[in-house]
């Protein structure tokens, strides 16, 4: 019963703050609302018994990515609401498109709960000791390739951010 209440509380918080990300005028407020959304999604991960993912989610998203966004917004001095509006036609079309997208997603996954529910044999599957074994046995190659991806993205970010001297 408690998990149900926690689920609905976190869901309402996530949806509300996601809407505020889109509709708030100041970009800094958008970033802060997005942090709230990420914390509520981390709470969902805790409810679904995947503790490692919840911790990584908080560290990576709220700790690294959102700080990067805030840093860029403050460095570009964008924390004022000088953004001109789109026309009402485009706004209405955006809202209608979002609603249709939601309708399609909900209807196309309608038969998902007809499958038999198969819980994991090991209830502690979300802990770091179990996930680490899977990561280093079955997914060794993708793990190493992701390190190359990070290297490439780091080089790319430095190259793009450099002042052009030629």
């Amino acid at each position: 019963m408690l998990t149900q209440y926690a689920f609905y509380f976190l869901s309402i918080l996530a949806i509300f703050s996601a809407l505020m990300v889109v509709f708030s005028r100041n970009p800094v407020h958008s970033v802060l609302y997005l942090v709230v959304t990420f914390f509520s999604i981390a709470g969902h991960y805790f409810l679904m018994n995947s503790q490692f993912l919840a911790m990584v989610h908080i560290i990576v998203y709220a700790g690294a990515i959102m700080v990067l966004f805030l840093y860029v917004i403050m460095m570009l001095n964008l924390n004022t609401d000088t953004e001109p509006n789109k026309s009402n036609w485009v706004k209405g079309a955006a809202v209608v498109t979002g609603g249709l997208m939601m309708l399609i997603l909900v209807v196309s996954t309608k038969s998902a709960d007809q499958l038999p529910i198969q819980k994991a044999l090991n209830p502690n599957i979300g802990l770091i000791s179990n996930l680490g074994k899977v990561l280093y046995n079955e997914y060794m190659l993708p793990f190493e390739v992701s390190s190359i991806l990070f290297l490439v993205s780091m080089v790319g970010a430095v190259m793009l951010g450099k002042k052009e001297t030629y």
Binding site: V21, P27, T109
Partner: peptide, 21 residues
Amino acid sequence: LSAILFSIGVMGVLYRRNAII
């Protein structure tokens, strides 16, 4: 919940003009 969050993302991409948002 996932469908609603995804649709809010799609709506935001079409709704705003600021590239950071």
